[in-house]
Design a protein around this nucleic acid. Sequence first.
DNA 1: TGTCATACCGTCCGAAACAGACCGTATGCG
DNA 2: CGCATACGGTCTGTTTCGGACGGTATGACA
Lengths: 178, 178
Amino acid sequence: MPVADRLSPTSYVVLGTIALRGPSTSYDLKRAVGRSIGYFWHFPHAQLYSEPQRLAELGLLAAETEAQGRRRRTFRLTDSGRAELKAWLAEPTPEHFQMRDIAELKLFFNEVAEPGDVERLAREQIAAHRERIAVYEDMQARYADLDAVAKRMITLRLGLEMEHAALRFWTALVDEVS
Amino acid sequence: MPVADRLSPTSYVVLGTIALRGPSTSYDLKRAVGRSIGYFWHFPHAQLYSEPQRLAELGLLAAETEAQGRRRRTFRLTDSGRAELKAWLAEPTPEHFQMRDIAELKLFFNEVAEPGDVERLAREQIAAHRERIAVYEDMQARYADLDAVAKRMITLRLGLEMEHAALRFWTALVDEVS
DNA sequence: TGTCATACCGTCCGAAACAGACCGTATGCG
DNA sequence: CGCATACGGTCTGTTTCGGACGGTATGACA
């Protein structure tokens, strides 16, 4: 079985992050992911401890145990790790967009569950809309912070785009209904 | 432990769908979900067989076994099931927007991994962009179908919105880079 | 100087979710 | 009749998920 078959998106997040930031401990990864990809894609941190191990066994990472103090391992990319990452980046992406948004789920059931009750529906929409705005403003606040640090983080920009799109959508829907 | 603590988003998908469509078998759910929420939120169908069971044990659904033919169970909402659903719909939504998009992950690592290599980056972007368009057109095609059947499915419209937003984003990025 | 609080760093575990192989049963059709 | 295809459902092994838990530095403050 080729190595690539044993790799998940999480694996590539680890490989990619180490490629970006150089040799890292699991804790480094945890923080790095939390400040970048974590904004739109949640990883339980436990995975960032187990996954590098797995990747090391597959020969894609090399572990160096630091002698001093706490036992912690620094992982760096091996050549085959880098090759694997490059191959993945080069190949076309068959998977397709997925998102999970609880607020939307609620809206969906609200909308169709009681189609006659327009009054109530409108109120629900508006509430959802308000929430969206809050989320979005919260995100913008975080942006201001981050902008100072890393100007062109496309990940975050896309996230913001998506929030905007969702916001516009809810707004239009509220107008339509009210 | 309150019942609500034992419920996941999947649970509410089941409850909500049954609320919408009336008493349903697991297979009904499978089809209904496939044609609505499934477009942007993937559920392995096996869950739509096990989850109603669990909900029945929690007293939120009632199961009726049909005597004739294949053994299949029809589930309907109990009063407490409906109450639970309503409570969930009414409460504010703390969770926050999440999405998983492999293409974006790739872009992210490409962008930052080799910041000097603009030429190559541009090519990668454009390829990603092309792919986006394909995905989006595919989605539009499906829409045309669906529109005839269910005109105002906000779920699908939002999905389309999101695809548009992503598309615009990649396009802008390509322009910026080239 | 002790002790307390608060990061920091990491492990572990039970419960879900996940992917998808697999398996019967109808139904149509050449 | 023989075959293909859709229908309806089960089962299993693996990952992921959340989050509780437990140590260890560090600094603040009495």
